[in-house]
Amino acid sequence: MYKKILVPVDLTHADRLEKALQTAADLSIHYGAPICYVGVTPEAPSPVARNPAEFAQKLEAFGQAQAARHGVTATTKSYSATDPAIDINKTLRKAVEEAGADLVVMASHVPNVTDYIWPSHGGWVAEHSEASVFVVR
């Protein structure tokens, strides 16, 4: 049913992603669809990496570790943005298109009043891309 699963990961908070990662892996095995782990990094140094090249390395290591652990086929793709806090939605849409993904599995934050001002990333991606979106609470 699904050809490729896109999993956005925030390497700063990788510990909070466990449930989403497990869900993605299970779906990947069930449908035989490879996973593409996607990360968005600022071009300026961040807590995760000093530059986009280092971020790409770390993301690849993360992807390989996940693939080995869950026994899935996985690739990684890193994107850099000048203002990632805002540009993350558009970057994810681009990632969905470029990876040819038809399912996005992502972790959600706890909804709160600020959602009225800046809506969740999952909702935005569902609205603006062709893929199905699975938001893991």
């Binding site: 807590p47 000093r50 090249a53 280092e54």
Partner: peptide, 20 residues
């Protein structure tokens, strides 16, 4: 080691982590 960003550059080797 931290890789160079794009092409060569003089990366400073510090133990400080951003946000620590």
């Amino acid at each position: 080691a931290v890789p160079a960003p794009e092409g060569d550059s003089d990366i400073i080797d510090t133990d400080y982590e951003i946000g620590q």
